[in-house]
Design a protein around this nucleic acid. Structure first.
Lengths: 137, 137
DNA sequence: TTTAGTTAGATAGCCTATCTATGTATCTTA
DNA sequence: TAAGATACATAGATAGGCTATCTAACTAAA
């Protein structure tokens, strides 16, 4: 419950930061998957981000319009679109990270070192939880 | 960054649970503030939830349509509408909490006791951070 | 007391994120 | 080769957000 509310408010707060970059949170998150995980198909991205495929199609279209991502056909299977970050996309993500990191760091100044570590650990735990039980009750 | 992605995915996941209750995450969160904090005005709720006043007006209208909240005029200042949870609202929130707790508990079965405590602690830290620096850079 | 400013809430108009249902092209396989 | 499966796109709906702006009501100063 507290976890729920905390996540909700944290995202609302960070969204304000992302807006300044001209990229929404959801797009930024998808973009970062491409940067750190390499090229992916729409369906793969959707699975990783845990959204429906149409949702991911739309996010990717947005990123493509913004020139942050480019999609290329797969010669061996002409149904798939393989998505790759552009140079602009990588630049933006780096800036975005700085931006977000700055925001978080500013906020975290009220916390001790131990607490910051605890937050990092918590993030890992949540990811782990979701990876193991993506479709619990 | 990891914190960002983790919060995003956690919310997407929990949202699926809330849908079964017929109440969205944002409404549920506002409702819980009323249950645990007592009657509030629209503006107070907006400040607590860290959204704009029009956004909160719309959330409250939804809750009112659903019969979960009732608004009453303040005799000493006829501009304000004081919002109060109905019996149905309290019931629903109780069910909702069980629901959400069950989902989280199911997911947390993959984690150890220490880890669960760490998550609780992290939720507190995030709230604390946001309370202290609501408008950081 | 009238006028100016402030405050609470509601509306309008816009955008993004999601979903389900469905369509279309392209494999894959019996 | 015809049937089914797969990858993606499109349509249409709902919800949550925001800014700008309106009205009503309160407050204070001339």
């Amino acid at each position: 419950m507290r976890l729920h509310g905390a996540a909700l408010r944290l995202l609302r707060r960070l969204r304000r930061t992302d807006v300044e970059l001209g990229v929404s949170t959801a797009r930024l998150s998808a973009l970062s998957v491409l940067v750190f995980g390499g090229p992916k198909t729409v369906s793969e991205l959707a699975a990783i981000e845990q959204v429906s495929q149409p949702t991911m199609t739309s996010l990717v279209q947005g990123l493509t319009r913004q020139g942050l991502v480019r999609s290329e056909g797969d010669p061996s299977d002409r149904r798939v679109r393989r998505l790759r970050v552009t140079a602009a996309g990588e630049r933006l993500l780096r800036r975005g990270q700085q931006n977000r990191v700055e925001t978080l760091v500013a906020m975290m100044e009220s916390l001790g070192r131990q607490d910051v570590l605890a937050l990092g650990r918590a993030a890992d735990l949540v990811e782990q939880m979701l990876a193991i039980a993506p479709d619990a009750p």
